[in-house]
């Protein structure tokens, strides 16, 4: 564990709030990043961060420093976010058609396709909107497993432990997440490849 964290954890366990505050200062942005990827919503992510640090404070005496404080607080964050995702109404069935400004319902206009390279920024916004919608199609288990594997680089064993799944079911959850996103993003991923090619050709001219 990081030396500063180790010292602050020990002092916070002895009742020093200022030490815990330093831990919050040091780790809150990383915790927010994880919570945002898990929930896909800023207000929800803020709530998860708050809940995770409150739980960490209450459970601090049980923390035995076998893992780093960061790993421990991230594990609590995953649990809080997972609980929140399971309580949240699903957004399934929403159209994946989006307009380049980020709003939903526009679809991809043929004109936009023809001028895709100059409109690269708008195209990027469209990809982001579609990715957001695709992530909303995932179940809480799939989303959590995917975020932990793809963004956090956690091992299958760690993910299985966090979600109470065996390796086979963990692998399947990750696969299903990627499969759903692959289907949802297929039109735009193909377009993205064309765009990149077109862009490269224009640069070479």
């Amino acid at each position: 564990m990081d030396e500063n964290d180790a010292r602050d954890v020990a002092q916070a366990q002895a009742g020093d709030e200022a030490s815990f505050r330093r831990l919050v200062d040091r780790h809150s942005r990383g915790v927010f990043q994880l919570a945002f990827r898990l929930t896909g919503s800023e207000p929800d992510a803020d709530d998860v961060v708050q809940e995770a640090f409150l739980k960490a404070y209450r459970e601090l005496k049980r923390f035995e420093s076998r893992s780093s404080f960061r790993t421990w607080v991230h594990r609590i964050t995953v649990n809080c976010a997972y609980d929140l995702l399971r309580q949240r109404p699903r957004h399934r069935g929403e159209s994946l058609d989006v307009d380049p400004s980020g709003g939903q319902g526009g679809g991809i206009e043929p004109e936009a396709e023809a001028t895709a390279w100059p409109d690269r920024l708008a195209f990027g916004a469209e990809i982001q909107s579609r990715v957001r919608a695709a992530l909303d199609l995932l179940t809480p288990t799939e989303r959590t497993a995917f975020v932990l594997r793809h963004f956090e680089g956690r091992s299958l064993g760690e993910i299985g432990k966090a979600l109470g799944l065996r390796t086979g079911a963990t692998k399947h959850s990750i696969f299903r997440a990627v499969q759903k996103m692959r289907r949802a993003l297929a039109p735009i991923v193909g377009q993205s490849a064309e765009n990149t090619g077109r862009g490269l050709r224009q640069l070479q001219m």
């Binding site: 505050r21 927010f32 945002f36 990827r37 990715v131 996103m181 993003l185």
Partner: peptide, 18 residues
């Protein structure tokens, strides 16, 4: 597909977030 997913930005909460 996964590269497209990587394009999703995470809002930066800034130095005062803690």
């Amino acid at each position: 597909t996964l590269a497209a997913v990587d394009q999703l930005p995470v809002p930066d909460r800034g130095d005062h977030y803690g």
